[in-house]
Design a binder for these strands. Structure first.
Length: 266
DNA sequence: ACCACGCTCGGGTTTACATCA
DNA sequence: ATTGATGTAAACCCGAGCGTG
């Protein structure tokens, strides 16, 4: 257990870290922070103070101006079960020393405010099995939530509506990703089939080419039996009488014109 | 019609945490 | 027992679209 006692004293106007700003990324000043606060606690107590009672980390840490400036904390044991706000306040009351302006400590966190570690790093809540199951069941019924459904679900699961909203957003993203993977696999199989078909067709082409070659060889052997091509009327007449092997060549035509051979090419 | 505002969503990213070698 | 790599998922950021006053 960490017992590094920390003493923090800060004074003055501070800027809310972007990551905890409700206005998503837009920096804003918080006039309410114009207060003098002195906190004495262990590091884990700092966590509780900030997570549950919304002390601005600027007030705890002092002069830093970004969330990452507070991230040098050791890992904090995650809280699987959401404890009630009252319990947290009670814990705080026994641990903290608050000299001036308790406002920051006693304000209940808003729906959109997230949990953060001491010094401003966000704390990641793991949903319990039961919470996940309920959310999954709800997702099966409807992949999006209206405000009332969200609130009801949040109340039922002791979560903030924002957490329910985020869960559904991430769940939809996961579903889509999975579907994309399935589609990708289908396309891959289709591609393999086409490749296979293409290979077969190429084989067929090679067969035909070799057949054509052998036929052309036969033509050479029976060159003397050529006769007129009826379509182009160009003649290389060898005077043969057997028209089963007759062939004629046309000027400007690469393809030989066959006679007597069942309509293979012409 | 235009504007400001709030809300929600999708897509992408960050990061706390768990697990495993 | 410790540690680094890796995967997962909660939380976040941002831009876009829509409804409303």
């Amino acid at each position: 257990m960490m017992c590094n006692t920390r003493l923090s004293l800060s004074l003055g106007l501070s800027t809310t870290p972007p990551h905890q700003n409700n206005n998503k990324g837009k920096l804003s000043t918080n006039d309410d922070n114009q207060e003098l606060t002195l906190c004495l606690s262990t590091s884990s107590e700092f966590t509780n103070n900030y997570d549950n009672n919304r002390i601005n980390p600027q007030l705890l840490g002092g002069v830093n101006s970004s969330a990452s400036s507070f991230s040098n904390t050791s890992s904090v044991k995650r809280e699987r079960d959401a404890s009630s706000f009252e319990e947290e306040v009670e814990n705080l009351e026994t641990k903290k020393v608050l000299l001036i302006s308790p406002k920051g400590l006693v304000d209940h966190k808003d729906d959109d405010e997230e949990d953060v570690h001491d010094y401003g790093t966000r704390k990641k809540l793991r949903l319990t099995k039961e919470q996940s199951d309920v959310l999954e069941d709800s997702f099966k019924e409807h992949t999006t939530l209206n405000s009332k459904q969200k609130r009801d679900l949040a109340r039922r699961l002791s979560l903030r509506p924002r957490q329910v909203e985020v869960w559904f957003q991430n769940r939809r993203a996961r579903t889509k990703l999975k579907q994309t993977e399935v589609n990708c696999e289908i396309l891959r199989k289709h591609y393999e089939e086409l490749k296979d078909e293409n290979r077969k067709l190429n084989k067929e082409i090679q067969k035909l080419k070799s057949l054509k070659k052998s036929q052309s060889f036969r033509v050479k052997l029976s060159a003397a039996t050529l006769s007129m091509c009826q379509s182009c009327e160009r003649t290389y007449n060898g005077g043969a009488t057997d028209n089963s092997t007759k062939i004629s060549y046309s000027i400007g035509d690469q393809k030989p014109h066959f006679y007597g051979i069942p309509s293979q090419i012409h």
